[in-house]
């Protein structure tokens, strides 16, 4: 597939980069990325991945756009209120870049559907807001040998890490098990500064693009944290020994996917 003149112009700032080039841009156009959650993290990630010309973008979310989402979920606009988030996200992505094919999945991720959702994709972005989903996505990606980006945001803080099979620890290596429901606050309970989704979600898109074009070093084996009040970044080296992990270790005890209980306050919309 050769680029049209219009595409050469659209992607010119990418193509001129030696780490991307026409070759990398072609890889992007052939890549398939799945974004789970069209919210604070998924919204900016989806915008950048669509703009970057990622050929196929899947987006999973069961919710409709709510007025309280618009403070940070920049892919949705005021007239989108009430619309499924996946539909609103698809419309915005297609408006940014008609080269992109957007697949929508208007559903929650569950132990029943997650493996099927991720199976056709090259890279997964976890933009979910709750620990049951985060552990489920991690375990599914480990079992299906899919690379993924974990991220979380709360108040003025954010974190992310990248898992690539065989190249370092998974989310469960670090965090073991979900905290009991309501033990650790979520965004709805604790609040989150809107631009944090932009900061961390954009970095998830960055990791996806780097993975696809094969540029630089990924956040495998590291947890990157950001404190916006102190304006401090901290890159924490994670213990490299994954052998004892319950899911990605040498003798996994988790061999089936688990639906953990959701925090009460997040069950109701």
């Amino acid at each position: 597939m050769a680029f049209t003149n219009e595409q050469l112009e659209r992607y010119s700032r990418h193509i001129i980069l030696k780490e991307v080039g026409a070759k990398g841009q072609k890889k992007l156009s052939q890549a398939k990325v799945l974004i789970i959650g069209a919210g604070g993290l998924g919204a900016p990630a989806a915008l950048y991945l669509a703009a970057a010309g990622v050929g196929t973008i899947g987006i999973v979310d069961a919710d409709e756009v709510d007025l309280s989402n618009l403070q940070r979920q920049v892919i949705h606009t005021t007239p989108d209120i009430g619309k499924p988030k996946v539909q609103s996200a698809k419309e915005t992505m297609e408006a940014i870049n008609p080269d992109v094919t957007v697949n929508t999945y208007h559903t929650f991720v569950t132990s029943e559907n997650v493996l099927d959702l991720i199976k056709d994709y090259d890279f997964i972005l976890d933009g979910t807001d709750n620990f049951p989903a985060k552990f489920l996505i991690n375990d599914a990606c480990v079992m299906a040998k899919k690379p993924f980006s974990h991220a979380g945001i709360i108040r003025f803080k954010g974190q992310l890490m990248t898992y690539v099979p065989g190249q370092g620890p998974c989310y469960r290596c670090v965090f073991k098990n979900p905290p009991p429901k309501d033990a650790v606050p979520t965004c709805k309970q604790a609040g989150v500064i809107g631009a944090m989704g932009g900061v961390i979600g954009s970095l998830q898109a960055m990791e996806a693009v780097k993975y696809i074009v094969g540029a630089g070093d990924l956040l495998t084996g590291y947890l990157l944290t950001f404190d916006a009040l102190k304006m401090e970044w901290h890159k924490v080296k994670l213990p490299p020994d994954t052998s004892k992990c319950a899911v990605c270790g040498e003798h996994p005890t988790i061999t089936e996917l688990v639906d953990y209980e959701q925090a009460e306050c997040d069950m109701k919309k």
Binding site: A38, T128, D129, I154
Partner: peptide
């Protein structure tokens, strides 16, 4: 010494 925290938010 490093402290790594659960951060759950992002979507809703």
């Amino acid at each position: 010494v490093e402290f790594l925290y659960f951060m759950g938010g992002g979507q809703a």
